[in-house]
Amino acid sequence: MNTKLTSFIRDSLYVIAGILFCGFALKGFLVPNRFFDGGITGISLLIHEIYHVNIAYVIVLANLPLIIMGAFQVNKKFALKTLLCAILLGICLLYVPYPTITSDKLLVSIFGGVFMGVGIGLSMRGGCALDGIEVLALYTLKRSSFTISEIILGINIVIFLIAALHLGLPTALYSILTYYTASRAINFVIEGVEEYTAVNIISSQSELVKEKLVKELGKGITIYKGERGFLKDNFDLSYPVDIVFTVVTRFEVRRMKNMVHQIDPQAFMYTHTIKEAAGGILKRRAREH
């Protein structure tokens, strides 16, 4: 099948699934219980509660300014896809008969956030945004000294303060839990269950470490040339060492650490999470991208 057609079908399925999940979160959990989320969805829910305007119309209208910004901040293709997503979500909210699942506040805050996060994450994997708060943050970033995270946090603080004033502090606090749950679900959907971790290993047994990583774990490695030593009592003494760099999934971190520890109990390792990795030996998983 043509690669572009395959990509289009895959992205379309992501977007459709994302819309259905978001619709379920809104009509099955959040709207019936007067709960909120962060971002543009939270603003839309606030407007819906305060002015009693149909949530389907509010979500489309609230996203329009950000879609226009997105045309300039990202590109016109992204803006058009996001506009289509917003319209389809509005149609979904109007015509899909989702049932109200529960009125238990804790269940609403957790599972409403989970389904909302899954929906937004799937839409992002499809190349559009069902909640365009990041576009607004990017726009503001160029006109202030704040980071994107700080801008998004500030916007959400305002949303939850207004929610606390109009609907009470308990509802606002539960809604913060909804927002947190949604943000974690978004990260899980975008990064996947096999989130990548970068590992650096400094060992006197680097040759054996390299062999085990490649032959037993099947990992690609990169070698940096460094020096070790420089101790307090022998600062002038140092010797060359190979610094081994590799990328593993988080499920493989423990196995890799145990393997290195068996080879060299004194080995120094440090890890950090990376948002995306592709190419090299990772091309075996290309079907997931």
Rank of each mutant, 00 (worst) to 15 (best):
A182I: 05
I110Q: 08
G126W: 05
F146K: 03
S149T: 07
L153M: 10
H166A: 13
L177I: 15
S203E: 03
F115P: 10
K215M: 13
R125L: 08
E211M: 09
F115V: 03
G117Y: 07
G112V: 07
F188M: 06
D104M: 03
T181P: 11
I148D: 02
I155C: 15
I201N: 00
G127A: 07
V114E: 03
A198D: 00
E195L: 00
L130Y: 02
G121R: 01
L169Y: 03
K212M: 06
T147I: 01
Y179A: 15
E150G: 04
I201Y: 05
G154I: 05
S109D: 08
T181I: 09
Y180R: 11
V118M: 04
A198R: 03
L167H: 06
L153W: 06
E195P: 00
S175Y: 14
V158N: 13
G112T: 08
T102P: 05
E211Q: 11
K219T: 10
G154D: 04
A198L: 01
Y224W: 14
I221R: 11
S145Q: 10
S123V: 02
L141P: 11
V108I: 13
Y196E: 00
A172R: 13
I110L: 14
G121W: 01
I151A: 08
K210S: 11
S203R: 09
A164H: 04
A163S: 14
L213K: 01
V114D: 02
I101A: 04
A198E: 01
G127K: 12
I223P: 09
S144P: 12
F160M: 12
G113Q: 06
G154H: 04
L106K: 05
Y139R: 14
G192Q: 02
V114Y: 04
I223K: 10
I176F: 14
I101Q: 07
Y180Q: 13
L173S: 07
G113I: 09
T222H: 12
V158M: 13
A163R: 02
G117Q: 07
Y196I: 00
I152E: 07
L177K: 09
S109A: 15
T171R: 15
L122D: 01
F115G: 06
N187I: 09
A129G: 00
A198S: 04
I201G: 00
M116F: 10
E195W: 00
I159V: 14
V135H: 09
D131S: 04
L122S: 02
G112F: 08
T140K: 12
L169K: 03
L106D: 07
L177W: 12
V108A: 06
L177G: 06
T197S: 02
G126C: 05
V118Q: 00
K105W: 13
I202S: 01
F111S: 10
T140S: 15
F115R: 04
V114M: 05
L122W: 00
K225R: 14
T197I: 06
E216Y: 05
L173E: 10
L208I: 14
G220W: 10
S206L: 07
I201H: 02
K105H: 13
Y174P: 08
G154W: 01
L165D: 08
I221S: 12
I162P: 06
V209I: 12
T178G: 13
E150T: 10
K225T: 11
G113V: 07
G127I: 09
I186Y: 08
S145Y: 10
I176P: 08
